[in-house]
Design a protein around this nucleic acid. Structure first.
Lengths: 204, 204
DNA sequence: GATAAAACCGACTAATGGGTTTGGTAAATT
DNA sequence: AATTTACCAAACCCATTAGTCGGTTTTATC
């Protein structure tokens, strides 16, 4: 195999396994040794590719977490259909994925925000920036919806966007306890109720 | 001082400081030594009063966390006024407290749920039970509101309650990043908008 | 003021953490 | 053929961890 490709492949494997364990057990409660044991790799290999555990984690955020957010929560709401419908089904699909995931431990972003808050400003910045990206995309989707006559012109798009995010963070946290199906169903009912109240009543 | 009183006093001091540090830095990232250093107490004192770190934490949940939830989120919504108003001002006051708290690290319950999920079923049970207590009290407040003609009879009280909780968990998580004031303001606007849509339209 | 129980001290243990270093190897690149 | 890349294995460093235990001080009681 070509060198740079091999390098990439190894680094990628480490990142995937690293994210898996960091997500499941938290960053501080996952040792580098543990990740390497899972992969049958040596410490030498790890520190050959990454400066430190922190450097490793930041690379995971950049390579995997941001992309995941994009594909799950941002790309699905692009387009010129009714943004309220787009957002609603996007949320539902994300929750369904979590629901059917045997190993669900909550919303990856908010979990890490909770863990790193007050401890690591650099990582916090990455996490908050990623959340912000989702937020601005929600806002512009809603504004587009106003322009296209789907969303009532009195709606505060920024407020609605952060309200949507907050409720999503919360429901994902609550879903880890078990009764995910019931929670998702009721949550989606409320979201739809909320969205109906935001819809433009002129053009049905 | 009477013996049992001294015991209580020491245990209580330990619990208060323990909660403070566990809340700020997480359970697994706070050592027993650290708590004791803060209090100028010895390890002997700690293990004289508590079986283990876990036992200590559970006592904190029972003694402090549950009471805090009651006084902040449950008692203020008891009564026969319009529950939507009660809940709304209760949420606002909680958020204001967080906003003006220099050392805010999010909603204590959801932080611990995130940290203990998949690690300690016993503690998770305590945490989920506490959240459940809040939930059932919200539900009954809303049902009372229906009965008293404040809340529209089509409203799904269980759904609304968990939606309120999820949005609160989320906004508290988001508020840790800094722009708490703006977030709180916009959040409360959305809550009020949501509650207006739930209000009984017959009796203004 | 003696006695015993309660409250507390702090050195110690065994294990674990992140991170470094060293010395070597096999394969790909030049 | 020489060199660089991508690892492995294992020892090592230093700090930190939950928990233990024998001993000491404080307090209540007789």
């Amino acid at each position: 195999m070509e060198k740079s490709l091999k390098r990439m492949a190894t680094m990628h494997k480490m990142q995937v396994t690293g994210l898996e364990l960091f997500y499941r057990k938290g960053y501080y409660n996952t040792s580098v040794d543990e990740i390497l044991k899972e992969l049958s790799l040596s410490k030498g290999a790890f520190y050959y590719h990454f400066k430190s555990k922190e450097d490793f984690f930041i690379s995971i955020l950049q390579q995997l977490v941001v992309r995941k957010i994009y594909s799950m929560l941002i790309e699905p709401i692009e387009g010129h259909d009714n943004p309220l419908d787009l957002i609603s089904s996007c949320l539902d699909e994300s929750l369904q994925m979590a629901e059917h995931n045997e190993n669900d431990y909550g919303f990856v972003l908010s979990n890490f925000i909770t863990e790193f808050n007050g401890k690591n400003p650099e990582i916090m910045k990455y996490l908050n920036d990623t959340l912000k990206i989702w937020e601005v995309n929600l806002v512009s989707a809603l504004q587009r919806g106003k322009f296209n006559g789907f969303v009532d012109r009195h709606v505060d798009c920024e407020g609605a966007a952060s309200y949507i995010i907050s409720s999503y963070i919360g429901i994902r946290t609550m879903m880890v306890e078990g009764s995910a199906t019931a929670l998702r169903y009721r949550y989606m009912q409320q979201v739809k109720f909320f969205f109906r109240a935001m819809a433009n009543k002129q053009t049905a």
